[in-house]
Nucleic acid binder design. Structure first.
Lengths: 244, 244
DNA sequence: ACGTGTCACAAGTCATACCTTTGGATTTTT
DNA sequence: AAAAATCCAAAGGTATGACTTGTGACACGT
């Protein structure tokens, strides 16, 4: 009835279509905040969102509830929805990380993530040496061998893929749920290092050796060696960041 | 009119009151999932939530949207709202961490957090040595002195407080937003170690010395020393966890 | 200037209606 | 009997409109 008519008039009726209107709005507003277009202190209203994106109050609320749960905004009666100061954001939320990596301030996010990698991966290697399954240990050794082969053959694309899987598997097998949750972010950093040539990446034989050392130490359950070999891998990264 | 009557009948009308009905439901369902009462694969429906908690569809949806954004659940048409497998949870979301620490499975969460501390704090110390402000450096030195005084006087309560502030300040001044975001969790771990006597905690003079070493190294901008002194502090923790 | 009160604004909640998708049962076909 | 097509009802997704509640901001009186 009248409802349908209004919908047809307002929107393309189909409106959100498959990619869920709700998600499009979330992406738009979330990226705007993460990228700084909507600075902390900026104010929105549900009404504004409804008109801006042609959505209903329900969807506008859903979206804001998600942003609120990430601490990107808070909402107050009579005031509206206010962008939080950056300090309070849930910077570990994968959505937020993604938005920030897609923004023009991606460098800050990359260096935070890289430093996090430097911190976590050695301990993850030690954990894997203690707690990985037999299959995981074997797979790590096999991946290290792949890395040498691909690295020496200069197949950078395949090398990167194997490298990502190596680090991902390490995090997955270390037995710490929080470390495991970082796998996507580590993969992102590795990919961008290669893709953006941000850190010109030519597999050095020393790095390849270190990967083999990590794999061997994990395979033999030697946590101490696994940890220091992983630190050795990351020293390269530290140097590139100017942290050494 | 009729609406009001129904509200009055249904609920205490006041219903949600100050602590926001919405938040109560979020806490209830969130804790149930985090604590395992609602196992992965369990199914809910909006309708069930409405009746269970005497809330409207809007509030039920808001709640689920938040849980969905934490990846604790996903929702599918015709099926309902399904609890996700644990592997996919956003385990860095402070709300989830809180719920898990409040559940009877808190031990897993504590050991994950402790391992995270072990990984992050040395790098944070190095970062602070490079990037802390003059005020922060001075405050760290002063806190280390407090720690010695309080530790030697046996004032464990005040010691814990100063210890928390020491570690919190270190994370805050290291210049890495992601590390900063961990401050609440580190504080939680430190508190519980003392409170629960989980790790009988009597400030050993060696630990006190190490705190002073960290502060001094940060103050003088010596990142290498700051990092290894912090590792020294955490070795005690590693031993207690059986990781050495 | 300084409390005090009023008011309008915007979020919070609710009830309802309609749509869209889809898992599973039913039927048809091979 | 097995596989494919069809249909149906269940459940989330979205839209609306009404009402409640908290609260800045402005006006007012002292």
């Amino acid at each position: 009835m009248s409802t349908a008519t209004l919908q047809d008039a307002d929107n393309t009726h189909d409106g959100g279509a498959s990619p869920a209107m709700h998600e499009r709005v979330l992406e738009a507003v979330g990226s705007a905040i993460a990228g700084g277009t909507l600075a902390p202190g900026s104010r929105l209203t549900l009404d504004f969102l409804q008109h801006e994106y042609g959505i209903s109050r329900t969807v506008a609320r859903d979206t804001m509830k998600v942003l609120e749960s990430m601490n990107l905004v808070y909402s107050r009666r009579r005031v509206g929805i206010v962008v939080q100061e950056r300090r309070l954001w849930n910077v570990f939320d994968p959505k937020l990380v993604r938005w920030r990596l897609a923004s023009d301030r991606r460098e800050i996010q990359y260096s935070s993530l890289t430093e996090l990698r430097i911190a976590v991966e050695p301990i993850a290697a030690a954990g894997a040496a203690r707690r990985a399954s037999a299959a995981e240990r074997a797979r790590l050794v096999s991946l290290a061998a792949d890395l040498r082969r691909l690295g020496e053959a200069g197949e950078l694309g395949a090398f990167l893929e194997a490298d990502i899987e190596f680090h991902r598997l390490l995090l997955a097998s270390c037995g710490n749920e929080m470390f495991m949750a970082l796998d996507g972010m580590v993969a992102e950093v590795l990919t961008s290092r290669t893709r953006q040539g941000l850190m010109p990446f030519k597999p050095r034989s020393e790095a390849i050796q270190a990967h083999e050392d990590v794999a061997a130490a994990v395979a033999s359950g030697d946590a101490i060696t696994a940890e220091s070999a992983m630190q050795h891998i990351l020293n390269e990264v530290r140097n590139a960041m100017g942290l050494h």
